[in-house]
Design a protein around this nucleic acid. Sequence first.
DNA 1: TCTGGGGTCCTAGGACCC
DNA 2: TCTGGGGTCCTAGGACCC
Length: 425
Amino acid sequence: MLNSLIALIDCNSFYASCERVFRPELRNRPVMVLSNNDGCVIARTQEVKDLGIAMGVPFFKVRALAKKHNIAVFSSNYALYGDMSRRVMKTLEQFTPEIEVYSIDEAFLYFDGFEHWNLSEHAKKIRNTILQHTGIPTSIGFAPTKVLAKVANKLAKKNSIYEGICVLDTEEKIKEALLSFPIGDLWGIGRQLEKKWHALGITTAWQLRNLPERTVRKIMTVQGHRMVLELKGIPCFAYKDMMDPKKQIISTRSFGHPITKINDLKESIANHVSRAAEKLRAQGSVCQSLYVFIRNNPFKDKGKTFYYAFDIAHFDPGTQVTNKLIDQAVKIIDRIYKLGVVYKKSGVCLSEISPQSQTQQHLFVSGDTNKNIRVMRTLDLINQRQGKGSLKFATCGTFNNNWPMQSKHRSPCYTTRWSELLKVG
DNA sequence: TCTGGGGTCCTAGGACCC
DNA sequence: TCTGGGGTCCTAGGACCC
């Protein structure tokens, strides 16, 4: 028996499950959720997976199939999913003090000192409690390391004999699991690496685990070596706090309809900057670098034209003041805008981020003034209370009608908007 | 008509310094 | 005249994740 196990808890088809919670009549109907602009399929219930509809496939390619099989289709509703995620994580906190929220629908739980517990029973309790509190079904994998917990979780999800729970707590069980586990299903092995390993005749996790370190490093460098150690039960991937400040903050989006006018681009960029800067301030940081890009649609007019343009502005000392950032962003658009291009997407990225408190004091160059900072604080406060976008800069436009998102199938914000609360009766 | 958005880590290679 | 070589910092880009 190995002690000190890690559990990976993962919500099944999370976004689709969230939609089902509020529409019980969908329980026996296949459900899928689309990305922004209703572009791609990003969540599917099991029935949809069984129909062969792949993750990330463009919606227009499967629209007919969806209709034929009476699939309930939703636009993504991140306010709802974010709120449901908080509820799931809150529930998990009851079961162990050490929880690492890994993504919107996954968390690692550390079970140090639980050696004498019956973990399968404990896992059942966790699953039932989450289901009761939130209506979301989950899968749970236990193992000595994160990589192995991912393996266990995958088995729990894929194989119905496990009933959603898989515990890999002995060397024999681990070996048995890895012997038939496809290398491409491992956490950290994507399409490129899978191809390389296959070319070398390595197809299972067990084979990878038994390769000499040299070989592994040649293909996957240090990350690969760490992965192999994890497969051997030696933890290498440390606890990562989701509250750690971001090193980059990105805001980007496709336009619901293509854009040609420079002012529309400026408006979209000003909105992206506002969003990103708000996140920057929320984590108490300043940034020294602002990256702005615009592009056309590389899928249309295949081979004809591909237009991608960007530029970077630097701030020294760093800033968190939206209007300063917008000012530079708009100047960048003036520089990179090309007449005649049909634009499909724009975005910004803030980087070289550091804590506000560590901002270097320059003798002759003034950074954000106290007045600047107070204005931003007030802005954030008002938007928090009155709703996003209540107060914004003129460059952002009064309406976003020039570049609206398509969300034809969005569900109501059952949990976050009073006007859209679920009505019972 | 219609192909997401937001992150992380690592490395190679150039610039520069002594 | 001799034109080496090691260290560090920075950036672009590739790979991955959900």
